[in-house]
Amino acid sequence: MEYKKTIGYLAVLLTILIWGIIFISTKVLLVDVQSVGILFFRFVMGFLVLLIVYPYCIKETTAK
């Protein structure tokens, strides 16, 4: 049980670090890159991270 708690704390710490870095990096990038380019890059990075974390395809369901 202690292992899961430690993993949870590390996940929260990683989220806080990424969340804090995003604001600083966006301000720096806006000098050279358009905001649409930054937005596109953030969505692509998020998509790739989700593919790594959850690589299985979502099964299709049929409406009854």
Score class of each variant (00 low, 15 high):
M1T: 10
M1G: 15
E2Y: 06
E2S: 12
Y3T: 10
Y3V: 08
Y3W: 09
Y3D: 10
Y3L: 12
K4N: 13
K4F: 08
K5T: 12
K5G: 05
K5Q: 15
K5I: 07
K5M: 09
T6Y: 04
T6W: 07
I7G: 02
I7Q: 07
I7H: 02
G8K: 03
G8Q: 01
Y9P: 01
L10C: 13
L10E: 10
A11S: 05
V12P: 00
V12Y: 00
V12C: 01
V12S: 01
V12M: 02
L13A: 06
L14E: 02
L14S: 06
L14T: 03
T15C: 11
T15A: 13
T15I: 09
L17A: 07
L17T: 01
L17P: 00
I18F: 03
I18N: 01
I18M: 01
W19D: 13
G20P: 01
I21C: 11
I21W: 12
I21Y: 09
I21L: 14
I22V: 08
I22S: 07
I22H: 04
I22K: 09
F23K: 04
F23I: 03
I24F: 05
I24Q: 01
I24M: 03
I24Y: 05
I24K: 05
I24L: 04
S25R: 09
T26K: 04
K27C: 00
K27Y: 05
V28S: 03
V28K: 06
V28I: 13
V28N: 02
L29F: 03
L29H: 00
L29T: 00
L30F: 01
L30V: 03
V31T: 07
V31E: 02
V31N: 02
D32T: 15
D32N: 12
D32W: 08
V33H: 05
V33L: 10
V33P: 00
V33I: 15
Q34T: 15
Q34K: 15
Q34A: 15
S35F: 12
S35N: 12
S35A: 14
S35W: 04
V36G: 05
V36H: 07
G37N: 04
I38M: 00
L39G: 11
L39K: 06
L39H: 07
F40W: 11
F41I: 10
F43V: 09
F43D: 01
V44C: 02
V44I: 13
M45S: 13
M45W: 12
G46T: 07
G46N: 06
F47A: 04
F47V: 03
L48Y: 06
L48F: 13
L48C: 07
L48M: 09
V49Y: 06
V49F: 14
V49R: 02
L50A: 10
L50N: 14
L51S: 07
L51I: 12
L51V: 06
L51F: 12
L51D: 04
L51Q: 09
I52T: 09
I52E: 04
I52C: 04
V53I: 08
V53R: 00
V53G: 02
Y56D: 12
C57V: 13
I58E: 07
I58A: 08
I58W: 10
K59N: 14
K59C: 08
E60C: 11
E60M: 13
T61I: 15
T61A: 10
T62H: 12
T62Y: 15
T62W: 14
T62S: 13
T62N: 11
A63S: 15
A63D: 14
A63K: 14
A63G: 13
A63F: 13
K64V: 10
K64M: 11
